[in-house]
Design a protein around this nucleic acid. Structure first.
Length: 267
DNA sequence: ATGACGGATCTAATCCGA
């Protein structure tokens, strides 16, 4: 059987429900993980998803900011959230599901952006980001006897070709060595596979986010790869396709992030 | 060329994103 999983920082799910539906109709993922839904649980447009066959929904939202949701055609079990850094914000939801007779779980994350200055002493937001990452070190790809996935807006572009200019971004939050090395540690110690770079060569530039502030995002192409799909190595063996839907950045009233999709052939 | 845009909120100006 085929399993298709997507992640997308939607930057307000209520404002962009139209392009979310367009995406679901055109690409038909089994599971979609959303970040920055920017609404409370009771404001989540569940009906729009159930109408399209996404009857299983795990929402963890709050007023105005942040918020994550996982919507699925397959039943979701063991839904829970961890309050990283005990800030009371909504940046994580984990859901279990079954596919091809295998037990899977997907952690859906919205990692703190970290503010402007890459100094935890001067900048509390950067301090928060580092503490959040520190707690993510505990995650293992074989936790709870399942094959785990870790997806979402991790707000770090780890490799040189994950940003438009490695040199110019070395001191810019999202690409500083302290962050990229931290992400490497989380990935290595948890035995995670970065599925995009598993398929796309490291010398190939690849971005998932382009600022709203650039005049012509496509021509300037000053992007970063902030959105990730990580998985247990056993799932890497079943990966048949992975793609970044760059086109979505040019859709009407777009999010500044685009969807990332992984397809698996399970058994 | 780290831009000067875009979202939510006690609708006007403020906070936040990365």
């Amino acid at each position: 059987m085929t399993l298709k999983l997507a992640t997308w920082n939607i930057n307000s799910v209520r404002l962009r429900i139209g392009i979310v539906e367009k995406f679901l109709k055109e690409h038909d993922p089994d599971i979609l993980c959303l970040q920055e839904i920017k609404c409370q649980n009771d404001q989540f447009p569940s009906k729009n998803f159930t109408r399209l066959g996404y009857e299983h929904i795990a929402v963890h939202g709050q007023k105005g900011y942040h918020g994550v949701a996982t919507v699925s055609k397959r039943p979701l079990t063991d839904i829970s959230s961890t309050d990283y850094c005990q800030m009371g914000d909504t940046r994580h939801v984990v859901t279990g599901f079954e596919a091809g007779g295998r037990k899977l779980r997907v952690h859906n994350f919205y990692v703190p952006a970290g503010g402007d200055e890459a100094d935890p002493v001067k900048n509390p937001k950067f301090d928060h980001k580092l503490k959040f990452l520190d707690e993510m070190l505990a995650l293992r790809s074989d936790d709870d006897g399942a094959e785990n996935l870790l997806v979402g807006d991790l707000n770090i572009a780890p490799h040189e070709n994950d940003v438009w200019s490695h040199k110019q971004l070395l001191k810019v939050v999202s690409h500083t060595p302290i962050e990229t090395e931290f992400l490497d540690r989380i990935r290595d110690e948890g035995d995670w596979l970065d599925l995009i770079r598993h398929k796309v060569p490291y010398d190939e530039r690849l971005f998932t986010w382009w600022s709203y502030r650039a005049r012509d995002w496509d021509a300037a192409d000053k992007g970063r790869r902030l959105d990730h799909i990580w998985a247990a190595p056993t799932l890497g063996e079943n990966l048949t396709d992975i793609s970044v839907l760059r086109d979505a950045r040019g859709w009407e009233k777009p999010s500044d992030h685009v969807p990332v999709m992984a397809t698996f052939d399970l058994d």
